[in-house]
Simulated assay, not measured.
Amino acid sequence: MGMAKTQLNVRVDEGTARAARERALARGMSVNRYIEELVRQDTGEVGHTFVDAAADFMKQYESVFAEEFGTEKEPPREGRR
């Protein structure tokens, strides 16, 4: 997939920009890559998308979490409000 990159200037409102940054960060990817993935997903280029993978991971993680703590609630963590 070593295609040449094209510069794309997109104007979005601040809320959208913030959401894109937060979601990219949460997935451990750049905003560029995040948007690339969203477009690929929308055009159906990906079978098992990163969103599906994330959802599967969260499901597995939930059960591990429940087993470990035997509760739905998050354990209190220091310095978190």
Rank of each mutant, 00 (worst) to 15 (best):
E72D: 07
N9L: 14
Y34S: 02
R33T: 15
A4G: 09
D52L: 08
E37M: 12
A24K: 10
A19S: 13
N32Y: 01
T16A: 14
A19V: 13
K5F: 09
K59H: 00
G70S: 00
M1P: 10
G44W: 00
T43Q: 07
T71V: 00
A54M: 11
M1H: 14
R18M: 10
V10N: 05
F65T: 00
M58S: 06
R18S: 13
A26C: 02
E36A: 04
R21T: 13
V12I: 15
K73E: 07
V39T: 12
K73Y: 03
A19H: 11
E78C: 02
A54Y: 13
T49G: 02
V39H: 07
P76D: 09
E74C: 02
M58W: 01
A24I: 14
I35D: 03
I35W: 03
F57Q: 10
A17P: 06
T16I: 14
V10I: 15
M3N: 13
T71F: 01
T16G: 06
F69H: 14
L25S: 12
Q7M: 12
D52M: 09
R23H: 14
P75A: 00
I35G: 02
D42W: 05
R11H: 11
E72W: 08
M1Y: 12
T6G: 10
T71E: 07
D42H: 07
L25D: 13
D56M: 01
F57N: 05
A20F: 14
L25G: 06
A4V: 09
L8A: 13
Y34K: 02
V10E: 03
M58N: 05
A20S: 06
H48L: 07
R77D: 00
G44H: 01
A4M: 09
A17C: 12
F50M: 08
V12G: 12
R21N: 14
T49N: 01
L38F: 09
A55C: 01
F69M: 04
H48I: 08
A4I: 08
F50I: 06
T16E: 12
G15P: 04
L38P: 05
V39D: 07
A4E: 13
M58T: 08
H48S: 05
A24F: 12
R18Y: 10
R18Q: 12
S63M: 11
L38N: 08
D56N: 01
R18P: 05
R81L: 14
K73L: 05
A20C: 05
R23W: 11
E22Q: 15
G44C: 03
A20L: 13
A24T: 15
E14P: 10
V31N: 05
G28C: 03
R40T: 09
R77N: 00
E68I: 05
G47K: 07
V64F: 03
R80D: 12
V31C: 08
M58L: 12
G2W: 06
G47A: 06
A20W: 11
K5E: 14
K5G: 12
Y34G: 02
R33Y: 06
I35C: 10
A66I: 10
